[in-house]
Write a protein that binds this DNA or RNA. Sequence first.
DNA 1: TCCATAGTTCGATGGTAGTCGATCTATTCA
DNA 2: TGAATAGATCGACTACCATCGAACTATGGA
Lengths: 229, 229
Amino acid sequence: MDAEVSIAVVAALVGDPARARMLTALMDGRARTAKELAYGAGVTPQTASSHLAKLLRASLLAMERQGRHRYFRLATPSVGHAVEALMAVSPTRARARASEAPLDGLRLARTCYDHLAGRLGVSVTEAMVRRRVLKPSGRDFLLTPAGTRFLGRLGVDVEKIRGERRAFARQCLDWSERRPHLAGSLGAAVARQCLDLRWVRRVGEERTLVLTLQGLRGLRTWFGINWKR
Amino acid sequence: MDAEVSIAVVAALVGDPARARMLTALMDGRARTAKELAYGAGVTPQTASSHLAKLLRASLLAMERQGRHRYFRLATPSVGHAVEALMAVSPTRARARASEAPLDGLRLARTCYDHLAGRLGVSVTEAMVRRRVLKPSGRDFLLTPAGTRFLGRLGVDVEKIRGERRAFARQCLDWSERRPHLAGSLGAAVARQCLDLRWVRRVGEERTLVLTLQGLRGLRTWFGINWKR
DNA sequence: TCCATAGTTCGATGGTAGTCGATCTATTCA
DNA sequence: TGAATAGATCGACTACCATCGAACTATGGA
């Protein structure tokens, strides 16, 4: 098969409405289960299963098993770029939505669900690993005793959020950074604290975050991060 | 129709092998006739006509009538970007070809058929218009008397190339720049002279050109162009 | 005026792929 | 161990669409 046709194969995959909806649903970098994607795309789980298998086989999506769930996410950043480039040549509404949330803003700092993602999320997570606050462990993070004290000084009540029913400190893979960031109830608490401390501020209705001046200082003194741009 | 589905419409258009071949054939920015595209794509003219009509209706292509010919080209740079982004997620060979001829190189300076295109072609053309060497006129350029003398000093024998059978000084629209550059026998002669004067050099087998040091000086003294990068 | 050529339109045909119901497997939880 | 849920597989149905032959329109040249 020659090069021209191989782009047609990929385009044809994106060219089905149900698959296009699944791909755009995954554009925020979060992983989702097959059922979520099925209902989001407006098709039955059987149909979705067939679509997801095709997207997997073409390496547009990546999949991770977790119990009886299967989590799907965009396989590489270039998949996201391709979807965006298609949005740019689509009529009116797709273009409008794409320009509302410019990629660079999204990529630098955004929330993913309720925790920090994008470059900021990854930076903070990696700083916590470097400073022995977190330790990667399987698909989770372990919070060290020193880490518990550290977060306590920052104003995060670790004992309280341990009591919550949801996963405590999950690794969440980032579409744009290809590196994991902190999710779960701990991730949400850290994000909440960053907002409360006025380190970051939400812009618009979107998931985009901007770093404040206090945030710049806070990241340096607490995490040793010298944020640029 | 919502945004997700509208990207599917575009992707489905690119998702047909014949149409994908037509689009990639147009990636160099040149306009081509329906027949050229038909045979290039390996389908009959009837089939190609149907494909081209669809691509036109979706504004992926633009068309210009010229006598009994119809010239098709990519409608906007973003169409080219979308095709490239799809190449980037396509298996092996498409990716290899895309990286062989990086977009930036192509965009800065390249030949289109036999004349200068890309940013260089547009810059030189616009400089000639600014200096009253050329005057836009319909789909052609007119060469002024002063322009004839100017090109003569540069070493282009205008009278001789006026004798050639092909169009003399055509405006050729550039995909990447969205602005016209000089084509036709005069455009070819100017490009030949730039190569003879060692202002530009071909790199590889591709249409990419690099500007030499002499070229940098030549552009400044002859055309008042301060080329950057 | 006539012929050659570029391109489109129409209609028939055939293949492909999305869809869902029914059924099956795997995992979790009580 | 059994019930519930996530998901995959299979098969049948349907609808769409790429393709090409034939016929048509339009432009250019002799």
